[in-house]
Design a protein around this nucleic acid. Sequence first.
DNA 1: TCCTCCGGAATGAACGTTCATTCAGTATTA
DNA 2: TAATACTGAATGAACGTTCATTCCGGAGGA
Lengths: 191, 191
Amino acid sequence: MPKPDKREEILCSALHLIAEHGFHGAPMAMIAERAGVGAGTIYRYFENKDVLINEMYKELEKRLTAYLLEGYAVEQPLRDRFLHLSTAVLRYCITNPIHFKYLEQFHNSPYGVAHRRDKFLGKSVQRDLYCELFEQGVTQGTIKNLPMVVLCSLAFGPLIFIARDHILGFVTLDDKLINNIISACWDSLKS
Amino acid sequence: MPKPDKREEILCSALHLIAEHGFHGAPMAMIAERAGVGAGTIYRYFENKDVLINEMYKELEKRLTAYLLEGYAVEQPLRDRFLHLSTAVLRYCITNPIHFKYLEQFHNSPYGVAHRRDKFLGKSVQRDLYCELFEQGVTQGTIKNLPMVVLCSLAFGPLIFIARDHILGFVTLDDKLINNIISACWDSLKS
DNA sequence: TCCTCCGGAATGAACGTTCATTCAGTATTA
DNA sequence: TAATACTGAATGAACGTTCATTCCGGAGGA
């Protein structure tokens, strides 16, 4: 009878090792050891390493989406919704640095490119939330009339960069600074 | 008598293979084959793979810096200098997609982190140019009074993101769009 | 001019290591 | 006891690196 939490142990072990040492610095044997299982056991839960890596990614995407939707109300004004989403993204990244590092590794690898191509233009639930927002903003003239990918880059680019710097210890983000950053991002988007 | 262009061949081969397939998808044997040399020959020019990878990086950084400095005049107004630098960064990235991909691989790897740490807060010549700009801007009140890393994230983040999207074919940047993007970045920086 | 010799550049088969994956055997549960 | 979960040593493929050997072109003697 397979203990379902053994799967969790393996995922958790993989998350930490890959976030810290990269895909190639996290051999299956090491993942197994940290998880407290035999090397072969991993293959009872995941067909191979690629599947494990992709499952881990799906898991993290699910959690991030859930976090973004917490307290998100479609009926709020555009700017408020933007502030909510962006603050949530930044907060999630810096309070879950391990998750953030894993997601970065994933996106900057053949896995990530394949994933983006599959989803046609990298549309994830997160990005969809933003796209909806931006489309409304463009229609009502609040937001610059630029292609959706450009708007996404203006919104996400600084967030990801600054989250990375925070995690590497090059800057310390507090509430006030976060507000200033997101407000600056909004300045780049609004007409 | 060592033909100096053999070194070039090896670097060029490594650049293409690593940009396209990543560090781990570019074995030394493959780099040697594409360069038209024996596997052992590489080690006459580079102590090991790590050295080869770092030398390649230095080379690209040098070229990018040269490109940025073309026509750059310190006596120009702040905004003009910002537009010059940002346009140059974006243009360089999208006209040299191979270079861009290599630089991305490098930055998102242990090599890149080590490199940033060495240079204390990732100060490269490129970033120095921006920092000088931003310091002046903050002093004279033109630019928001935010930490230097934050200003860099606001300036670089969108550029890198949109360059990636362009290269992956998710958007096509023309002169007009580039101007709009950089102008939007400026909006996020100016007080 | 031709031949021989020599230094070092170039080579690529071979080596040792690492890794994902397998499987024969053991432990656990029902 | 039967069935299933688990284990970790064994496997073989792939990799970075080495090194005994080959190759090449210029120097020097006749």
